[in-house]
Simulated assay, not measured.
Amino acid sequence: MIIGVPKEIKNHEYRVGMVPASVNELTLRNHQVLIETQAGMGIGFSDQDYINAGATILATACEIFEQSEMIVKVKEPQAIERAMLREDQILFTYLHLAPDPAQTIDLVKSGAVCIAYETVTDDRGGLPLLAPMSEVAGRMSIQAGAMALEKSRGGSGMLLGGVPGVEPAKVTIIGGGMVGTNAAQMAVGLGADVIVLDRSIDALRRINMQFGSRVKAIYSTADAIDRHVIDADLVIGGVLIPGAAAPKLVTHEHISKMKPGSAIVDVAIDQGGCVETSKATTHQDPTYIVDDVVHYCVANMPGAVARTSTFALNNVTLPYIIKIADQGYRKALMQDKHLLNGLNVIHGKITCKEVAEALDFEFFEPTSLLS
């Protein structure tokens, strides 16, 4: 199979779909890999590194899309990239379609086979291709929140961990999954007063087992959100419903009642955000203020630590890339129910129920379109 890796073009996105070691694995299996020139420069890989791994370097993204049977990316294709997709071409990347009707319409029109990293599942009910980026984003959320609390950035001027004689900041984390657990780990390490809200008793039990009395694990109700969001110095939004738009658990009314200079980091912004006042921002201009509350809503947070993120992502995507390349997408999808869950769009049809419901599209059972 001919696999193409274009350079990412989203604002301050330096990750790349495949590192040279991944390319080498595919070329050893007699697949051809095309890399757009300088695609890996942001994380320290030259064109020569890719050539040494067996790749062919092409000058433009247009050439990559024209010549490739499968496109491997990191972030969702931008409009200019979506226009280059064609019938039966495979797109393997993060998509986050539920809050993005424009992208969904373009992918439907393209006729391409679009497999989303974030809805691929595993035997334990997890999301193995989303997990490493959730780990990164969860840890980064505390860094971002700590900076947002600085006075120069519009915050209250509070240090998360305080100092002897001065109380620490209260950090409320909504969601006890991968993002929330990693955020809690960082916040505890800095000495903050940490609350985690979740509706899963299993998740709360796991948080309690991991952190003990250092984290208060509380069942999430409307009343609990009211109390612990309004009183927080920093709120981390880590809610995820796989494939679906994030529920708006923090309302504008909550924001209006929060302390001036407090901060929110909405990690769920890729899926539309779990805060009513959230809107996607970029690493170039990451924050804005609503009712004296600093909002950090960067939609590609792990892109700021691109090298770590790229290696973490490649570790989990490579086996699936190899499977699709070796078997072709039809056989690979039909033989692997977890990879099949990643199929969001094929030949103009929506095959992810959550996306179809969120955007009012007709849902098609994926196996009916593959058999």
Results as ranks from 00 to 15, higher is better:
M18W: 02
K259R: 13
G328E: 05
V74S: 02
G44P: 02
D88V: 03
P164T: 01
Y320F: 14
N30M: 13
G189A: 11
K331E: 15
E69P: 13
M178V: 15
D123R: 14
A203E: 09
Q143I: 15
L130E: 02
T282W: 01
F211K: 00
R214H: 03
R29M: 12
R330V: 13
P260R: 07
M147D: 13
V179H: 04
A169V: 09
T310H: 04
E276S: 05
P20I: 04
L340M: 11
G138L: 06
I105T: 12
N11D: 13
I3C: 07
D88M: 14
I230T: 13
R153C: 11
A217H: 01
E36A: 09
I57T: 05
G162F: 07
V188L: 12
G189E: 08
Y219G: 02
Q103R: 15
I324A: 06
T282V: 08
V171L: 04
G348E: 05
S152V: 15
G157W: 11
S368Y: 09
A356Q: 03
A169H: 05
F92W: 06
N24V: 13
A146Y: 06
V316W: 02
A59K: 12
G175C: 02
E362L: 11
P6Y: 05
A112G: 11
T317E: 09
E8F: 12
A299K: 11
Q67H: 15
E118P: 10
P286A: 07
V345H: 08
C274R: 00
G303C: 09
V163N: 01
N182V: 06
I218P: 06
N344R: 14
V293N: 01
S200R: 00
D193F: 02
V305M: 10
V250Y: 01
M41A: 12
A358S: 12
E63C: 07
A332C: 10
I80R: 15
N315V: 07
P128T: 04
V235H: 00
S156P: 09
A79C: 13
I241T: 10
H295I: 04
E87M: 13
L160G: 02
S156V: 10
K323N: 15
I3K: 06
Y288V: 06
D88L: 09
I225Q: 00
G157L: 04
L97A: 12
T317A: 11
K109L: 11
P20A: 10
V72P: 00
I255C: 09
A268W: 02
E8N: 11
A184G: 04
M1Q: 06
M178Y: 07
Q38P: 12
K109E: 11
A246I: 01
